[in-house]
Design a protein around this nucleic acid. Structure first.
Lengths: 221, 221
DNA sequence: TGACGTAATTATGAATTCAAAATTAAATAT
DNA sequence: ATATTTAATTTTGAATTCATAATTACGTCA
């Protein structure tokens, strides 16, 4: 019998973390609003203790902002923030490219290739949501192939914050085309297992994305 | 009158975070031991609520490990962990080098130059502790010159975890000499403001460090 | 009307309490 | 004596309570 066969019942604050993160990333709790602590406790049927534990964690994650004696607020997404976040993400993404090329299996490449074709199909059909999903799956597959859980944790935490900007709604035809082109290069570098090249393309790809986000944010002012 | 002149009274869990982090990094709470929750509450005169909030934050930071229904344990430092942490640190350190070269002022370079000379003096005097302090100050000065708070947060969080390994005791004369040489190159690249070169040296420097840590860890088995 | 001050209300931070789980100690059987 | 149950104790997770701070509502006066 397997001793480690324990039934994992995660604590409430962990469960809450997932749900709260979603609420913030999906925009249900919009940037700048107050986190309705009591309401959320009622909604999920928990007391304030685990809810507040979760909020403390989200605060180090950068998704909420704790104002002493005044409660928790959903963090805003400012250009200044993103200007700091993007270079870091770029460095991490470049690393994930390098590591992925060193470790990826033929099967994993095959999966990415398929997802890539799917994504191109969505692009041609101008289906933004599906395109975005395939896109995200590709980046996560590369990250997974890199096989570094520290990297994964850090990258996903930053990615979550960026994803809150609904920049895709603003994507121009030209930029979209460019993004797809870059993805062709990503696939090519991966197939050649050229880590340095992939790292650079991913970094470049990210900075295009940044430009899109920047334009979106500026258009809202 | 300045409106933002509010008296900052940080909440208990934030205060506790600083203290707990120190206890773990300094090794007062050694890797693998159980976090004595009740004892710590008594020591700091707080109730379990803020203490547990702090522990939840330390868990995402990777300094403690929460075992459901069994309490919090100080994370161990394994080679496997460090093998994942170091590449990420390397990428971040390289980025800090690039950004630092782009933004550093003459005055900041001057400070680093002085610290560097100090460090060399400690090396010649074979004063490991002082050497380590100067060393750390240099890396933090570069990080500061990079001027990216996201980068700083992430880097310091990883650095804290690595610092828990008391690897320096294990440093050979040869390695130490090599580290000082690398620091000469770091200073030179900084003075030339050659970001690419600095990034590479820093990355190389870190991987030397990793080797030392690895040897230290292996020597303990 | 609106600026100011005060009282009532609500929200927050943290201590306390309580049920459930885990650990330890004791008791029983082999 | 050594396993194996069973009971007592401690620890944990989370709800509740409580003091304090912040906000809102109200009343006063210029």
């Amino acid at each position: 019998m397997n001793i480690s066969e324990t039934i994992a019942r995660p604590s409430l604050h962990v469960e809450l973390l997932d749900r709260l993160r979603d609420l913030i990333i999906e925009g249900t709790l919009p940037p700048g609003t107050k986190v309705p602590e009591r309401e959320l406790c009622e909604r999920y049927g928990v007391s304030r203790t685990p809810m507040r534990e979760a909020l403390k964690v989200l605060a180090v994650d950068g998704l909420v902002w704790l104002e002493p004696n005044r409660g928790a607020w959903v963090s805003k997404i400012t250009i200044e923030d993103l200007e700091e976040v993007f270079p870091v993400m770029g460095a991490l993404e470049a690393l994930s490219g390098e590591l992925a090329c060193a470790n990826i299996t033929e099967e994993e490449i095959e999966v990415i290739r398929k997802t890539h074709l799917e994504m191109v199909k969505h692009y041609k059909a101008r289906n933004l949501t599906s395109y975005f999903q395939s896109n995200q799956r590709i980046h996560e597959a590369i990250l997974h192939a890199a096989g570094n859980s520290e990297l994964t944790t850090m990258y996903l935490s930053l990615a979550a914050r960026v994803r809150r900007a609904r920049y895709l709604a603003n994507m121009t035809e030209e930029r979209w085309q460019k993004a797809v082109d870059e993805h062709e290069q990503i696939l090519a570098a991966l197939e050649k297992r050229d880590g340095t090249a992939l790292g650079q393309i991913l970094r470049q790809h990210l900075s295009s994305k940044f430009e899109t986000v920047r334009l979106w944010l500026e258009s809202k002012e």
